[in-house]
Amino acid sequence: MILTVTPNPALDKFYWLEDLPDDLGLTEEKSALRAEKSMTSAGGKGINVSVFLAAHGIDTVAMGFLGGHTGQIILRDVLARGVGANFVWIEEENRINVVLIVQGRGYHPIHIHEEGPRIPKEALEIFLRKYERMLLRAHYVVLAGALPPGVPPDFYQELSRRARARGVPVVVHAGGEPMLRALQERPFLVKPDVRETLRFGDMPLRTKEEVVAAGRHAIAQGASSCLISHHLTGDVLVSVDGVWEFEGKVPPSAFRNVVGADDALVGGILVGLKQGMDLVESVKYGMAAAVASAKVDEKLCLEKEKIAEELAQIEVQFRGKE
């Protein structure tokens, strides 16, 4: 079973617009934006990873905090997608994340993200007890996404420590201080979320060399491997065994919705590992899943055939041990 932790689940609401006016001051007749299409689904990085895994027939359980009407919708969607659910209920409502996708610009969505509910101390304590129970059945743990208010920045470090004590490999799919702190607990894989800052701690990520340096820093801090995106279709894997570059030969114009592509990447890596592939082959499969997901309107491409088609477009280059 693969356990995913999403401390700040969301209800993702996508709107596809024909156009978005440059001037949102707008005249009265233009003040309403009409969506050509909309879509709603349970979200948050860990939940997305679980949905991807369940679609591949892999036993997975999602954990986190749910509250209010939004929480009930999230739970219903998670269960309907074949994901096991073990959430802690809280009083406050879960967040709704809105994504606007303008026709022809699927590679550059506009996000409106809510902060999320405040997690009470009592809920954190209940979560940790549940987490300990689930660790007994987990083969991997995925710690994913930003932390909501009330959750301390060492949360992922603590969860990594507990997983390590039980011999369960951890994937950290998050950014900022919570991800950096988790490094010392020797996670199996770190996939830093660097979308907003283009930084890994204090280290810039403007060039490929800087990305490799940041990956090496993660290894020095304790991670076994680190996968960093340096542009929309390019990732660098750094491990103790060397450095690999992955490139998806796909033009950005082919992308319809890139939201969730990085979650498909992590899900794809885990599918590969569960199927017995080595890490490099698994990352290649994950990249194919990410590209396939970016090419469909839905957040995740769950069709194995489409993912298999993209595999041929993924180039892998070994850059050596140094």
């Binding site: 359980v61 009930q72 739970l75 269960l79 096991g84 073990n86 209920w89």
Partner: peptide
């Protein structure tokens, strides 16, 4: 099967169980 693992432990207070029953359906 509904793969909802909502559950309580033996020492969970009754008030908490009521809240979970209300939220989980």
């Amino acid at each position: 099967v509904r793969r909802d693992l909502s559950a309580v432990e033996r020492d969970t207070p009754v008030a908490r169980a009521i809240k979970i029953l209300e939220n989980s359906g």
